[in-house]
Amino acid sequence: MQKVSFKNRTWDLAGNIFLPENFDDTKKYPAIVCVHPGSSVKEQTAGLYATELALNGFIALAFDASFQGESGGEPRFLEDPATRVEDIRCAIDYLTTLVFVDNDRIGAMGVCAGGGYAANASLSEKRIKAIATVIGTNASRAFREANPIETLTAVSQQRTAEANGAEKIINNWIPDSAEEAEKLGLEEMDLLEAIDYYRTPRGQHPNSCNKLLFTSMSNLIMFDAFHLAEYFLTQPLLVIVGDKVGGFGSYRDGFDLYNKAASANKKIHIVKGASHYDLYDQPEATKEALKQLIPFFQANI
């Protein structure tokens, strides 16, 4: 693994590039961009998948989203779907500058919200020759289903306040502990598993600090990751979901993407007994996902 950086507009994005065993820089390799979930960083689940893909002969690039982790951009902790999609395009730009990457064999995969962003990028970014999602979510869908008008009104009021000197509001993505969630009456399975992954030694990373700029909410609510997929998502597509269904909706979103996509070559794979967060890092679940991902990319890029 090597640390790298590349530009999105005027700021630097921080990435980790994973190279195959017995790497030879005089050869050309297929490459895969690995996109992390919302609130995550490159060292977490995206890095896990990138590591395994590299062990199977691919160049794999995981990177921190703009405004987050080690990447640049202001304001900090902004989750802007349009910029997240542009990050993916910039990652592909970077890969095309590497002499050992075959520019005609580039794929993309993403986990959770990263899957939705990767799918959306593939609608217009035809340098992506194959696309895979692992418990990919249309993250905006969940926000649209939870008092969106009230939230949009609050964001508008906050922008006015900030324009007139008020401090920015930065909220947590999730409660910091299971105990905090219990006090708030938030005991849904996916949420508790998110806390277990992000806020305990299981998966936590100091750069994944559980912070979300409140004014991001208007961007999140209005973004539909799968919009026009029935016309423009034409590349080979692999959708991986777990059948232990929780409130974050990745099972539902996976079928939505699969059914909408215009791809002639598409497949959905259900990992039996796996929850959303099992497919982040649990060995049996991720092993099964990789048994689908590796041959899919070998056949299509």
Rank of each mutant, 00 (worst) to 15 (best):
T133E: 08
D196F: 08
R199H: 12
G136W: 12
M189A: 13
N171I: 15
D196V: 09
Y197N: 07
Y197G: 10
A163G: 01
A142P: 04
A194R: 06
A181P: 04
N172F: 06
I169P: 02
A161T: 00
F143M: 03
Y198M: 12
N138F: 06
R199A: 13
E182H: 10
I174V: 11
G165K: 05
L184P: 05
R141E: 12
M189R: 15
I131D: 02
W173Q: 02
V155P: 02
T151W: 00
K168A: 13
A163C: 02
I195L: 09
A132C: 07
E150H: 02
A166V: 00
I195A: 07
E180G: 05
N172Q: 13
I170N: 02
R141F: 09
L184Y: 13
K183T: 10
I169L: 14
E167N: 15
N172M: 05
E182K: 15
R159D: 14
R159S: 04
G165M: 10
E187A: 06
A154E: 14
T133Y: 13
L152V: 12
L192R: 11
T133F: 12
K129A: 05
I149P: 05
K168I: 11
T133I: 13
G136M: 03
T160V: 09
A132Y: 10
A166L: 07
A146R: 15
G136N: 00
I169K: 11
I195E: 04
Q158F: 02
S140Q: 04
Y198R: 05
K168E: 08
P148E: 05
R199C: 15
K129F: 00
I174P: 11
A194G: 13
I174A: 08
A130T: 01
A194M: 14
D190P: 12
E162K: 01
A161H: 00
E145T: 09
P148Y: 01
G165D: 08
I135F: 14
A132K: 04
S156L: 09
A130C: 02
A142S: 14
G165T: 03
E193N: 13
A161R: 01
G136D: 01
T137W: 10
L152A: 14
A163D: 12
R199S: 08
I131G: 00
I195D: 04
L186T: 08
N138Q: 10
E180F: 06
A163I: 00
P148T: 02
A181V: 04
E180M: 10
Y198Q: 06
G165F: 07
L191Q: 07
F143W: 00
R199Y: 09
A166P: 01
T137A: 15
T151S: 07
I170D: 01
Q157I: 09
N172G: 08
Q158I: 05
T160F: 04
I131N: 02
E187C: 06
R159H: 01
G136T: 03
I131W: 01
A161S: 00
A130N: 01
M189P: 15
I135G: 05
T153M: 11
